[in-house]
């Protein structure tokens, strides 16, 4: 069964979304009249060649960018109706982002990095909760280490935990395993799988065949259009 038609409520929805960029010589349409829906608990893999618009798709859903046409709603909130500050405030509470290059704050240690989204959302939490979370994912020994002392896989797992620690509705992951070896990739993907199983909607852009195999739904962006493969 397609999870988009599941019992879970719709978390992310795009309607007629288009986005084009002005290059030096011409305008390049990256996404053209896209419709898309994802529900809680979905793990969606977005694939496509380089420059096809995967990152743009995630940026639009995350409120980092705005479409030229169409509407984007996350948990019922129309992001296109919000200004930059409104989108930022919405993102900090309801969306978690994971990037290929980890994007941990280099001057904060692991526990401080994980505390950051909680502080932003004014969520009361003691360090024991964060430590328990780290223990669950095998990172408790690195709690007070700075990011540059962690392996790539460890950094990405911390980044994934940071993206989920404030319990957002939607996780957007842009090439989460693009910088990791197979073993580290599996650890990260396992973690993402667990998060999805806990009911969070995860949308992941990836080049990796093995990563996309973790997903429930498979979408491809090509020539500005989104194609979803039917479920086996």
């Amino acid at each position: 069964m397609n999870r988009s038609q599941s019992k879970y409520p719709s978390v992310a929805m795009m309607t007629g979304v288009s986005r084009a960029f002005d290059d030096a010589r011409f305008t390049r349409t990256v996404l053209n009249n896209i419709d898309f829906t994802a529900n809680a608990g979905d793990l969606v893999a977005i694939t496509g060649p380089s420059g096809s618009g995967k990152s743009t798709f995630l940026h639009l859903l995350g409120g980092i960018d705005v479409p030229d046409h169409g509407h984007i709603a996350v948990n019922g909130m129309d992001l296109t109706s919000l200004n930059e500050t409104g989108r930022t405030l919405f993102r900090r509470k309801h969306i978690g982002l994971v990037f290929q290059f980890f994007n941990l704050i280099p001057t904060l240690n692991v526990i401080e990095n994980l505390r950051l989204p909680l502080e932003l959302c004014s969520i009361r939490s003691d360090d024991s909760t964060i430590l328990a979370l780290l223990e669950r994912f095998g990172l408790e020994h690195q709690a007070h280490a700075y990011p540059d002392l962690l392996s790539g896989g460890e950094q990405q797992r911390v980044a994934v935990i940071r993206a989920t620690i404030h319990k957002p509705l939607l996780i957007l992951a842009d090439e989460p395993t693009g910088n990791l070896d197979d073993c580290q990739s599996r650890a990260v993907l396992d973690l993402i799988r667990q998060i999805s199983n806990d009911g969070t909607c995860v949308i992941m852009a990836t080049h990796s065949q093995s990563a996309s195999e973790y997903a429930d739904r498979h979408c491809t962006i090509k020539n500005g259009k989104l194609h979803e493969a039917s479920q086996a």
């Binding site: 001057t107 904060l108 401080e112 950051l116 909680l118 502080e119 932003l120 009361r124 939490s125 003691d126």
Partner: peptide, 24 residues
Amino acid sequence: PRKPERPGSATGTLLKVFLREQKK
């Protein structure tokens, strides 16, 4: 049961990030 700690200030953390950058 341990009372949850008062959350740190996001602004304070940000200032800490910048000042650590300066130190570095």
